[in-house]
Structure formats: structure tokens, C-alpha cells
């Protein structure tokens, strides 16, 4: 433990700015993945263990689009849409057949998807790591705010992820589709009785969740290695977020993602050897004190 250093950090504006910016960016990227996971669970009741693979596919689709075009915007679009379409395909042909079945069956089918996608990636892009690199348009010196360092590209990432979060929140709370989705999460039978095709709703929700994971993969491709199996570590963190935030709660997922991002960021100063452990401690505390999670429904 290096709590003295943590104390010095929180009393220094430059340190707070640097760690806050890094923590919020990490947290927002995590939120994109976790919000998709929690949305799918909340509406479909499906624990999508293959969600990390959709994140990975988003990164690969982005890489494939970025190579010939050199456009980061197109790369992010390709990553998002590609993952969404892939998610739709798996939902229609595999996962829709196991709705309502026990979690072991869900785990088995999702694990099959993970293996299939890992092999597909190896066949198409090879087994070794790929590096997209930060697009030249974003290669600017970092912002210096109060002595703290905020990388230009991280500011862009934070802006894009925040916009997506706002759009998601608005879509879920203020649109007709959002109301249908929330209703389907509570009582799908009643939604069906009102003449709404729940099959289409489920497919759309899964595609949106997959698209969010793909967007996170595409956005982080310039700063992380693109490699088969890249979704595993983000999946574990996403599950922690889902547990802390409350299964099915988008707002809870946002809060939990930011908590984890900041824990990582400030933890690297104060308890660098216990950052991973700290995340699980937070999860355990939430499970003990508020089992339904920060944004979950009680009872």
C-alpha cells in the first residue's frame, strides 16, 4: 500500500486531473460494453457470456475498415454495425432458442460462440496481435490542465462515449421503443398481448447490446492490441459492473463503470498491487450491503 502517495495525489490538482481524466475514459469505455450486457440481461434474461467476443469483433471490423479508408469515423461505424449484425445473426439462429433455459445451457451456447469467433478471427486476420495505432488526426500533444495531463485522443474518446451514453439514456427513457423495451423487461406477456412483436423487440435489443460492445471495441482499437481472445478481460470487468450496478440497470452500469474506472486510476497510485482485488472487494461489499446492486430493483 502506498497510501501516502495517494494522499499526496488527491491534494495535488495536476494528479487529480490526470487520474480523473484517465479513470473517466476507462470507465466510459467499460460502460459501453457493460451497458449492452446489462440491457440484454434485463430484457432477454440471457447472461451473454459471448459479449466480450462481440467487443473483440468490433475491434477487428474497425481495423478492417480503417486499413483501406484511413477514416476513424468509418472504422467506428463498421465496428458498431458489424458487431450489431453479428449479434443479430447469433440471436436469431442460436440464442433465441435457449431463452428461458437454465444458465448452464446459456453458458454452453455462448462458449461455443466464443470459440467460433476466436477461430474465425484467426482464419481471417491471423493469430498474432494487430495494432491500429492512433489515427494521425488525433496525434496532438496532450492538454495540460492545472498541470495534469489529458491526452487529446482520450478527450475525444470520452466525448464520443458520453454522447452514446446520453443517446442510450434518452432512447430508453423518452422514446416509444424505449418504453416498449422497458415494458418487455417487466412483463413480456403483456407487451405481446398488446400486439407488439416481442421477437423483433428481443432481436433489436440484442443487436443494440452487441453494437454497444462493438463500438467500445472499435473506439479502443487505436490504444489497445487487437488480438484473438481480447474480449475475455473486458467481459470479466463487465460482469463486475453488472453486479455492482444491478442486473438490467443502465444507470447502475454507468455508476459502476465510473467507480471501477476511478478505482483503477487512483488505485494505481495508492494500492498498485491491489487494483484488481479492490474491484472484487467493491463487488463483494455491494453484494453484502445492497444485493440488488446500485441501480437494481429491491426485492
Amino acid at each position: 500500500m502506498e497510501l501516502t502517495e495517494l494522499g499526496e495525489c488527491v491534494s495535488s490538482l495536476s494528479c487529480v486531473v490526470t487520474q480523473l481524466a484517465a479513470g473517466l475514459t476507462i470507465g466510459m469505455l467499460l460502460f459501453l460494453v457493460a451497458s449492452g450486457l446489462t440491457l440484454i440481461f434485463g430484457v432477454l434474461g440471457l447472461v451473454n457470456f459471448a459479449h466480450g467476443s462481440l467487443y473483440m469483433m468490433g475491434a477487428y471490423f474497425a481495423l478492417a475498415a480503417y486499413g483501406p479508408t484511413g477514416s476513424f469515423a468509418l472504422a467506428v461505424l463498421a465496428g458498431t454495425l458489424g458487431a450489431a449484425l453479428l449479434g443479430l445473426f447469433f440471436e436469431r439462429f442460436l440464442l433465441s432458442r435457449i431463452y428461458g433455459q437454465d444458465v448452464l445451457m446459456q453458458l454452453l451456447v455462448c462458449y461455443a460462440i466464443i470459440l467460433i469467433l476466436d477461430d474465425v478471427v484467426k482464419i481471417i486476420w491471423g493469430a498474432d496481435f494487430r495494432n491500429m495505432g492512433v489515427p494521425p488526426a488525433f496525434l496532438h500533444p496532450p492538454f495540460i490542465i492545472g498541470g495534469g495531463v489529458v491526452p487529446y485522443f482520450y478527450a475525444i474518446l470520452f466525448g464520443i462515449t458520453a454522447l452514446i451514453a446520453v443517446a442510450l439514456s434518452y432512447g430508453m427513457s423518452r422514446t416509444r421503443f424505449g418504453r416498449i423495451v422497458r415494458a418487455a423487461a417487466v412483463n413480456p406477456g403483456m407487451v405481446g398481448a398488446l400486439g407488439i412483436n416481442t421477437t423483433v423487440v428481443y432481436a433489436a435489443v440484442f443487436a443494440i447490446g452487441a453494437g454497444l460492445a462493438g463500438a467500445a471495441g472499435a473506439l479502443s482499437a487505436p490504444i489497445r492490441s487487437v488480438v484473438p481472445g481480447a474480449g475475455v478481460s473486458i467481459l470479466i470487468e463487465s460482469f463486475i459492473v453488472t453486479v455492482i450496478g444491478g442486473m438490467g440497470s443502465i444507470g447502475g452500469a454507468l455508476a459502476a463503470s465510473l467507480i471501477l474506472g476511478l478505482t483503477r486510476s487512483f488505485g494505481s497510485i495508492g494500492f498498485p498491487l491491489f487494483v484488481e482485488g479492490a474491484m472484487f472487494v467493491i463487488m463483494a461489499l455491494v453484494l453484502i450491503l445492497r444485493p440488488s446492486g446500485l441501480g437494481g430493483r429491491r426485492g
Binding site: 490526470t18 476507462i26 494505481s268
Partner: peptide, 17 residues
Amino acid sequence: PRLFQADYTENITRLNQ
């Protein structure tokens, strides 16, 4: 950082500090 860690942000900010 862990072997094969995906993101080094937390390590880099520590170095920066």
C-alpha cells in the same frame, strides 16, 4: 502491469505522476 494486460492507462498515469 499483468502479462498481456489490455490497457496500460493506469500504469502510464502513475509514471506521469
